[in-house]
Simulated assay, not measured.
Amino acid sequence: MEVSSLSKTLILLGLLLATHTNLALVQGYQGGGGGTRVGFYKSTCPGVESIVQSAVESAVQANPTIAPGLLRMFFHDCFINGCDASILINGPSTEKSAGPNAFLRGFEVIDAAKSKLEKACPGVVSCSDILALAARDSVVLTGGHSWKVPLGRRDGLVSRGSDTANLPAFNDSISVQIKKFADKGLDIQDLVTLVGGHTIGTAACAVFSYRLYNFNNTNRPDPDINPSFLPQLRALCPNGGNALRRVALDTGSVNSFGGSFYANLKYGRGVIESDAKLWSDPTTQRFVQRFLGYRGRHGLIFDVEFGRAMVKMGNVEVKNGKRGEIRRVCTAIN
């Protein structure tokens, strides 16, 4: 059957649209949109990525908990005054010493990478770029897909522990989570995608045990917890037990990066309250369904979307040009 001229036109338009969409995705990965770009150190420090990767790989092989620690560190850094390595600065009233960052780990990995980079290309690579690369490498080393990291950030000059009050919290409602992400230019899909980083790592019993025994002063557990999952959590975190004991955020996937986190949410196996609400609230549930490939929903591929969202988050309030500095050591302002 001969194709009509109208059909040919529609087919051509469809091909042009697909090409434009693919080009936009590639450009989105190549340039961060915040003054950063892939290949920023191509002529000034060409070995930067291999040096950071080597430091992260050695650390994760020795201690797998370093991987989720570095990923969380980048997230926490970007949410406070932008991705500027302010979380790395030592001091009694800095972000690093504040309560929400008390359980972060991997600071020594950033310091090790910086030390090597200062020998290879002194005064060139920022601590904030090292952290962005280390977060990506942590995902790859635990089985996730890689992505190109736009670089060119400069390091911040301010670090206040009081600013950590703006971090997303373990008991935030969905509306509060949405607002905190929106304040950083991140939408609901970004929220659901980035929280999927909880597919690796653990939480202390202190962060969620209230859900197991006396949720909202009801003397009952959180109804979002699957009754068949409750005994497992109670065995790990008995009432009045060790509040510092660590429990996998994604049951069965503590050291393996993948989309199983969303399946656990669907079946009422979310460990912390803010994660569990991603399924119980319809505003975010529709995105969880897309990651799970629900029929009738346009599917999302977690590995692809996570890289995209990390690039977007990595350009939150970036300092470049004459703003900020390139620290000589990551733990102190020059």
Rank of each mutant, 00 (worst) to 15 (best):
T202N: 14
E317S: 14
F291P: 03
L230V: 01
E57M: 10
V109R: 00
F287T: 08
A169T: 09
H298K: 10
V109K: 04
E57R: 13
S173C: 11
E57Y: 08
I178S: 06
T199P: 03
K119F: 07
G161F: 02
C45I: 06
A112S: 15
G299E: 06
G196N: 05
L17S: 10
P68I: 01
K42P: 01
A204V: 02
G314S: 00
S209D: 15
T283W: 02
L15N: 10
R211G: 04
Q61F: 10
I333E: 03
L12H: 09
D77E: 03
A235R: 14
V329D: 02
A113K: 08
S54Y: 09
F181G: 05
C45T: 03
R327H: 06
L151F: 11
P282M: 11
G152A: 03
N166Y: 13
Y213W: 09
L12R: 15
R308P: 01
L131M: 11
L6S: 13
F107C: 03
S128Q: 01
D222E: 05
I66W: 05
G14M: 13
R160H: 11
N315M: 02
D155K: 04
D187L: 10
G47C: 06
F170S: 07
A98H: 01
V52T: 12
R211W: 02
L25D: 12
A169N: 13
A98G: 03
S146T: 11
